[in-house]
Protein backbone atom coordinates (compact mmCIF):
# COMPACT_ATOMS: atom_id res chain seq x y z
CA UNK A 1 0.00 0.00 0.00
CA UNK A 2 1.57 3.32 -1.04
CA UNK A 3 0.69 6.22 1.16
CA UNK A 4 0.02 9.46 -0.72
CA UNK A 5 1.88 12.48 0.58
CA UNK A 6 -1.12 14.80 0.96
CA UNK A 7 -2.37 15.42 4.53
CA UNK A 8 -5.68 13.63 3.95
CA UNK A 9 -3.83 10.51 2.77
CA UNK A 10 -3.79 6.92 3.92
CA UNK A 11 -2.28 7.65 7.33
CA UNK A 12 -4.99 10.24 8.01
CA UNK A 13 -7.70 7.67 7.31
CA UNK A 14 -5.87 4.99 9.25
CA UNK A 15 -5.94 7.39 12.19
CA UNK A 16 -9.63 8.13 11.61
CA UNK A 17 -10.24 4.38 11.77
CA UNK A 18 -8.23 4.16 15.00
CA UNK A 19 -10.47 6.80 16.54
CA UNK A 20 -13.31 4.31 16.07
CA UNK A 21 -12.15 2.82 19.38
CA UNK A 22 -14.24 5.56 21.02
CA UNK A 23 -17.35 4.69 19.02
CA UNK A 24 -20.44 3.03 20.47
CA UNK A 25 -19.80 -0.30 18.66
CA UNK A 26 -16.24 -0.53 20.04
CA UNK A 27 -17.30 0.37 23.57
CA UNK A 28 -20.07 -2.23 23.51
CA UNK A 29 -17.71 -4.85 22.15
CA UNK A 30 -15.29 -4.11 24.99
CA UNK A 31 -18.12 -4.57 27.49
CA UNK A 32 -18.90 -7.90 25.85
CA UNK A 33 -15.22 -8.83 26.21
CA UNK A 34 -15.45 -8.12 29.94
CA UNK A 35 -18.26 -10.69 29.92
CA UNK A 36 -16.16 -13.16 27.93
CA UNK A 37 -13.18 -12.67 30.24
CA UNK A 38 -15.42 -13.54 33.20
CA UNK A 39 -16.65 -16.63 31.38
CA UNK A 40 -13.09 -17.79 30.65
CA UNK A 41 -12.02 -17.28 34.27
CA UNK A 42 -15.09 -19.17 35.48
CA UNK A 43 -14.25 -21.99 33.04
CA UNK A 44 -10.70 -22.18 34.40
CA UNK A 45 -8.89 -21.19 31.20
CA UNK A 46 -5.43 -19.89 32.28
CA UNK A 47 -4.37 -16.27 31.78
CA UNK A 48 -1.99 -16.75 28.83
CA UNK A 49 -4.43 -18.89 26.88
CA UNK A 50 -7.32 -16.47 27.43
CA UNK A 51 -5.25 -13.56 26.11
CA UNK A 52 -3.96 -15.72 23.24
CA UNK A 53 -7.43 -16.72 22.07
CA UNK A 54 -8.66 -13.14 22.27
CA UNK A 55 -6.14 -12.12 19.63
CA UNK A 56 -6.01 -15.29 17.57
CA UNK A 57 -9.71 -16.09 17.18
CA UNK A 58 -11.11 -12.61 17.63
CA UNK A 59 -14.72 -13.60 16.77
CA UNK A 60 -16.50 -13.67 20.12
CA UNK A 61 -19.03 -16.51 19.52
CA UNK A 62 -16.22 -18.77 18.27
CA UNK A 63 -14.26 -18.17 21.48
CA UNK A 64 -17.27 -18.94 23.66
CA UNK A 65 -17.73 -22.21 21.73
CA UNK A 66 -14.05 -23.13 22.01
CA UNK A 67 -14.09 -22.58 25.78
CA UNK A 68 -17.29 -24.66 25.89
CA UNK A 69 -15.58 -27.46 23.94
CA UNK A 70 -12.56 -27.38 26.28
CA UNK A 71 -14.89 -27.56 29.30
CA UNK A 72 -16.73 -30.52 27.77
CA UNK A 73 -13.41 -32.32 27.16
CA UNK A 74 -13.93 -32.41 23.41
CA UNK A 75 -11.21 -33.88 21.19
CA UNK A 76 -9.19 -31.64 18.88
CA UNK A 77 -11.11 -32.67 15.71
CA UNK A 78 -14.47 -32.23 17.48
CA UNK A 79 -13.53 -28.80 18.80
CA UNK A 80 -12.22 -27.80 15.38
CA UNK A 81 -15.46 -28.85 13.68
CA UNK A 82 -17.64 -27.09 16.26
CA UNK A 83 -15.74 -23.82 15.92
CA UNK A 84 -15.40 -24.11 12.13
CA UNK A 85 -19.13 -24.73 11.64
CA UNK A 86 -20.07 -21.75 13.79
CA UNK A 87 -17.61 -19.57 11.90
CA UNK A 88 -18.84 -20.25 8.37
CA UNK A 89 -20.88 -17.09 8.86
CA UNK A 90 -17.62 -15.13 8.66
CA UNK A 91 -17.32 -16.04 4.99
CA UNK A 92 -20.41 -14.19 3.64
CA UNK A 93 -19.62 -11.30 6.01
CA UNK A 94 -16.10 -10.97 4.65
CA UNK A 95 -17.31 -11.53 1.08
CA UNK A 96 -19.86 -8.71 1.51
CA UNK A 97 -17.34 -6.35 3.11
CA UNK A 98 -14.39 -6.81 0.72
CA UNK A 99 -16.09 -5.26 -2.37
CA UNK A 100 -16.85 -2.19 -0.23
CA UNK A 101 -13.27 -1.53 0.82
CA UNK A 102 -10.96 -2.71 -1.93
CA UNK A 103 -9.84 -0.94 -5.07
CA UNK A 104 -8.56 -2.49 -8.29
CA UNK A 105 -5.04 -2.07 -6.96
CA UNK A 106 -5.45 -3.52 -3.47
CA UNK A 107 -3.20 -6.61 -3.23
CA UNK A 108 -4.98 -9.81 -2.23
CA UNK A 109 -2.35 -10.67 0.41
CA UNK A 110 -3.17 -7.46 2.25
CA UNK A 111 -6.87 -8.30 2.27
CA UNK A 112 -6.11 -11.84 3.48
CA UNK A 113 -4.05 -10.38 6.31
CA UNK A 114 -6.61 -7.74 7.29
CA UNK A 115 -9.53 -10.18 7.05
CA UNK A 116 -8.42 -11.53 10.43
CA UNK A 117 -9.82 -8.37 12.04
CA UNK A 118 -13.29 -8.91 10.58
CA UNK A 119 -15.88 -10.04 13.09
CA UNK A 120 -19.43 -8.85 13.66
CA UNK A 121 -18.50 -5.52 15.27
CA UNK A 122 -15.92 -4.58 12.65
CA UNK A 123 -18.43 -5.55 9.95
CA UNK A 124 -21.20 -3.42 11.39
CA UNK A 125 -18.91 -0.47 12.13
CA UNK A 126 -17.37 -0.50 8.66
CA UNK A 127 -20.63 -1.00 6.73
CA UNK A 128 -22.14 1.91 8.65
CA UNK A 129 -19.36 4.40 7.89
CA UNK A 130 -17.46 3.24 4.83
CA UNK A 131 -19.48 5.28 2.33
CA UNK A 132 -18.12 8.48 3.84
CA UNK A 133 -14.52 7.34 3.28
CA UNK A 134 -12.88 7.93 -0.13
CA UNK A 135 -12.50 4.56 -1.84
CA UNK A 136 -8.71 4.64 -2.09
CA UNK A 137 -8.46 5.07 1.69
CA UNK A 138 -11.06 2.54 2.80
CA UNK A 139 -8.53 -0.26 3.39
CA UNK A 140 -6.47 2.10 5.59
CA UNK A 141 -9.60 3.16 7.49
CA UNK A 142 -10.61 -0.44 8.11
CA UNK A 143 -7.08 -1.46 9.11
CA UNK A 144 -6.89 1.42 11.60
CA UNK A 145 -10.14 0.38 13.23
CA UNK A 146 -9.62 -3.38 13.14
CA UNK A 147 -6.07 -3.42 14.50
CA UNK A 148 -6.81 -0.89 17.23
CA UNK A 149 -9.96 -2.59 18.48
CA UNK A 150 -8.36 -6.03 18.48
CA UNK A 151 -5.29 -4.71 20.30
CA UNK A 152 -7.39 -2.81 22.85
CA UNK A 153 -9.43 -5.91 23.69
CA UNK A 154 -6.30 -8.04 24.11
CA UNK A 155 -5.01 -5.49 26.63
CA UNK A 156 -8.45 -5.26 28.27
CA UNK A 157 -8.70 -9.02 28.78
CA UNK A 158 -5.12 -9.17 30.12
CA UNK A 159 -5.75 -6.34 32.60
CA UNK A 160 -9.14 -7.60 33.81
CA UNK A 161 -8.29 -11.29 34.08
CA UNK A 162 -7.41 -11.25 37.77
CA UNK A 163 -10.26 -9.01 38.97
CA UNK A 164 -13.19 -9.90 36.71
CA UNK A 165 -14.55 -12.68 38.93
CA UNK A 166 -15.60 -10.07 41.49
CA UNK A 167 -18.21 -8.75 39.06
CA UNK A 168 -21.77 -8.97 40.46
CA UNK A 169 -23.87 -11.65 38.71
CA UNK A 170 -26.47 -9.14 37.52
CA UNK A 171 -23.83 -6.95 35.86
CA UNK A 172 -22.24 -10.01 34.22
CA UNK A 173 -25.67 -11.04 32.88
CA UNK A 174 -26.30 -7.53 31.54
CA UNK A 175 -22.94 -7.61 29.75
CA UNK A 176 -23.97 -10.79 27.95
CA UNK A 177 -27.27 -9.12 27.02
CA UNK A 178 -25.61 -6.02 25.61
CA UNK A 179 -24.22 -7.84 22.55
CA UNK A 180 -27.46 -9.19 21.02
CA UNK A 181 -29.36 -5.95 21.66
CA UNK A 182 -26.56 -3.92 20.13
CA UNK A 183 -26.38 -6.19 17.07
CA UNK A 184 -30.16 -6.08 16.67
CA UNK A 185 -30.33 -2.28 16.61
CA UNK A 186 -27.07 -1.51 14.80
CA UNK A 187 -27.56 -4.02 11.99
CA UNK A 188 -31.08 -2.69 11.44
CA UNK A 189 -29.75 0.87 11.41
CA UNK A 190 -26.96 0.08 8.94
CA UNK A 191 -29.06 -2.01 6.54
CA UNK A 192 -30.02 0.18 3.62
CA UNK A 193 -31.58 -2.42 1.33
CA UNK A 194 -35.03 -3.90 1.64
CA UNK A 195 -33.54 -7.37 1.05
CA UNK A 196 -31.36 -6.92 4.14
CA UNK A 197 -34.30 -5.95 6.36
CA UNK A 198 -36.37 -8.91 5.16
CA UNK A 199 -33.33 -11.16 5.79
CA UNK A 200 -33.06 -9.80 9.33
CA UNK A 201 -36.69 -10.58 10.18
CA UNK A 202 -36.60 -14.05 8.61
CA UNK A 203 -33.25 -14.85 10.25
CA UNK A 204 -34.55 -13.95 13.71
CA UNK A 205 -37.34 -16.50 13.25
CA UNK A 206 -35.33 -19.19 11.48
CA UNK A 207 -32.43 -19.22 13.98
CA UNK A 208 -34.47 -20.69 16.86
CA UNK A 209 -36.52 -22.82 14.45
CA UNK A 210 -33.46 -24.54 12.96
CA UNK A 211 -32.01 -24.79 16.46
CA UNK A 212 -34.83 -27.23 17.24
CA UNK A 213 -34.30 -29.24 14.05
CA UNK A 214 -30.53 -29.18 13.45
CA UNK A 215 -28.72 -27.56 16.40
CA UNK A 216 -25.20 -28.02 14.94
CA UNK A 217 -26.02 -26.26 11.70
CA UNK A 218 -28.77 -23.87 12.82
CA UNK A 219 -26.94 -20.60 12.10
CA UNK A 220 -25.77 -21.80 8.72
CA UNK A 221 -29.19 -23.06 7.59
CA UNK A 222 -30.94 -19.96 8.90
CA UNK A 223 -28.47 -17.79 6.99
CA UNK A 224 -28.59 -19.55 3.65
CA UNK A 225 -32.34 -20.27 3.68
CA UNK A 226 -33.30 -16.92 5.21
CA UNK A 227 -30.95 -14.91 3.01
CA UNK A 228 -32.10 -16.66 -0.15
CA UNK A 229 -35.80 -16.20 0.73
CA UNK A 230 -35.19 -12.52 1.45
CA UNK A 231 -33.28 -12.11 -1.81
CA UNK A 232 -36.08 -13.76 -3.82
CA UNK A 233 -38.81 -11.80 -2.02
CA UNK A 234 -36.97 -8.58 -2.79
CA UNK A 235 -36.61 -9.52 -6.48
CA UNK A 236 -40.32 -10.40 -6.75
CA UNK A 237 -41.17 -7.09 -5.10
CA UNK A 238 -38.98 -5.16 -7.52
CA UNK A 239 -40.36 -7.04 -10.54
CA UNK A 240 -43.92 -6.26 -9.50
CA UNK A 241 -43.32 -2.55 -8.92
CA UNK A 242 -41.47 -2.35 -12.25
CA UNK A 243 -44.29 -3.87 -14.30
Amino acid sequence: MSLPADPAGGSHWFFRGMRGIFSLPAIILMSAFVGFCGFAVEAGVPFGETVFMTGMIWALPAKVLLVGSILAGASLPAAFITVALSSIRLMPMVAALIPEIRTEKTPTWLLLLLSHFIAITAYVFTMERIRDVPREHRVAFFAGFGITVTGANIVLVAVLYSTVSQLPAMVAGALFFLTPVYFLTSIWASTRERAGRIAMVIGLGLGPLFHQVAPEFDILYAGVVGGTLAFLADRAWKARSAS
Binding site: G35, G38, F39, E42, P61, V64, G68, R89, P92, M93, A95, A96, P99, I120, Y123, A169, M170, A172, G173, F176, F177, T179, P180, F183, L184, I187, T191, E193, A195, G196, I198, A199, M200, V201, I202, G203, L204, G205, L206, G207, P208, F210, H211, D218, I219, L220, A222, G223, V224, V225, G226, G227, T228, A230, F231, D234
Partner: peptide, 27 residues
Protein backbone atom coordinates in the same frame (compact mmCIF):
# COMPACT_ATOMS: atom_id res chain seq x y z
CA UNK B 1 -23.49 -9.31 -3.80
CA UNK B 2 -27.06 -8.49 -2.70
CA UNK B 3 -27.61 -12.20 -2.10
CA UNK B 4 -24.36 -12.60 -0.14
CA UNK B 5 -25.28 -9.58 1.98
CA UNK B 6 -28.75 -10.99 2.61
CA UNK B 7 -27.22 -14.31 3.71
CA UNK B 8 -24.76 -12.49 6.00
CA UNK B 9 -27.60 -10.48 7.54
CA UNK B 10 -29.83 -13.53 8.07
CA UNK B 11 -26.88 -15.36 9.69
CA UNK B 12 -26.33 -12.46 12.08
CA UNK B 13 -30.05 -12.33 12.88
CA UNK B 14 -29.96 -16.03 13.75
CA UNK B 15 -26.94 -15.40 16.02
CA UNK B 16 -28.85 -12.59 17.75
CA UNK B 17 -31.94 -14.76 18.31
CA UNK B 18 -29.77 -17.54 19.74
CA UNK B 19 -27.85 -15.19 22.04
CA UNK B 20 -31.16 -14.05 23.52
CA UNK B 21 -32.97 -17.41 23.63
CA UNK B 22 -30.07 -19.74 24.47
CA UNK B 23 -27.49 -17.54 26.24
CA UNK B 24 -24.21 -18.46 27.93
CA UNK B 25 -22.93 -17.34 31.33
CA UNK B 26 -24.94 -15.38 33.89
CA UNK B 27 -27.66 -14.40 31.44
Amino acid sequence: LTWVRAVATALLAAVIAKLILYPTGEL
